[in-house]
Nucleic acid binder design. Structure first.
Lengths: 120, 120
DNA sequence: ACGTTGCCTAGATGGATGTCAAATTAGAGC
DNA sequence: GCTCTAATTTGACATCCATCTAGGCAACGT
C-alpha cells in the first residue's frame, strides 16, 4: 500500500440521481468501475463486514476466516474495493484495518433516488 | 422475450442497509448479479436514458443511436439489465419500450444508506 | 404476397477476471 | 541478526464477458 488513501479519483462528479441529468460517457465509465468492484459476492460480503464492524473498522485477520479462500485472494478483493474508492486501509502495528468511505456510499445511495414522484 | 416481466427473483430480500445486518451468502450472490449488470458503462448509460426518458419509458430505436455499437450488442445489454430486474420491456406494435422497475432502484438506494450517525 | 424494418438469438473470439501457489515486504519479539 | 506472523505482490491458469457477424421472427406498408 503506497499510502493511506487510494481513491480512484478524488473529484467524483457526485450525486445526481440516474433519473435526472444525463450521464456523460466519462461519468458512466467512472461509475461502472465502482459497480464492477461491487459485482462479486465475496467483495459484497467483505464490504458488508467492514461497514457493519464494531467501531467502523475491521482487521484483515478477521476478514479472512469466514471465507474458504486463501489470504492472497482476500487481499486482492480488498485492493479492488480500495481502488474503487469505497474503502480505505490503514496499518497499525502488525495489523491492517479497513473502513468504509461514507461519501462514496452516500453518492451511490443518491444515484438510485427516484424523481420524487411529484412533478406538479 | 418470453413475457412482460423478467425479474431475476421476485422475492428479493429487500432493503437492509449494508452497514446493518449481515449479508447471507445467497443475498450477496443475488446482489452481485445486479451490480454486475450495472458494471458496464454502456448499460449504465442505457439505464440512465431509460430512467430519465419522457413518460418514464424509452423505445429501443432511440437507445441504439447514441452508441457506436451494433443493434445486437445493445439488445444484449438490455437483456442483462432485464434479467437483473432493474428494467422491463414491453412490445407495442412495431416497437419495444423499456422502463425502470422503481422497487429495484429503491432497494439499491437503501442498501447504501448510512447508519444515520445517531446511535445514542 | 412480398419486401422492409425493428428487435432478438446463436455462435465465435479476444480480452478481462477470480483463484491459487510461491515469493516478498513489514512489524514484533527474542 | 534471526524468526515468526500478517498482509501483499507476482505469475500462471481457467473461466467469464463484451462485442461482432450471421441468421430468425414479427409487424407494418404497398
Amino acid at each position: 500500500m503506497s499510502n493511506l488513501l487510494e481513491l480512484s479519483d478524488v473529484s467524483t462528479p457526485c450525486c445526481a440521481p440516474l433519473s435526472d441529468s444525463a450521464l456523460s460517457e466519462a461519468e458512466a465509465a467512472d461509475l461502472a468501475k465502482v459497480f464492477k468492484a461491487l459485482s462479486d459476492p465475496v467483495r459484497l460480503r467483505l464490504l458488508n463486514m467492514i461497514a457493519s464492524a464494531e467501531g467502523g473498522e475491521a482487521c484483515v485477520c478477521d476478514l479472512t476466516g469466514p471465507f474458504e479462500l486463501t489470504a492472497p485472494t482476500i487481499s486482492h478483493h480488498l485492493k479492488v474495493l480500495r481502488q474503487a474508492g469505497v474503502i480505505e486501509g490503514e496499518r497499525r502495528g502488525t495489523w491492517v484495518y479497513y473502513r468504509t468511505i461514507p461519501e462514496a456510499l452516500t453518492r451511490l445511495s443518491g444515484l438510485f433516488a427516484l424523481p420524487s414522484a411529484v412533478p406538479a
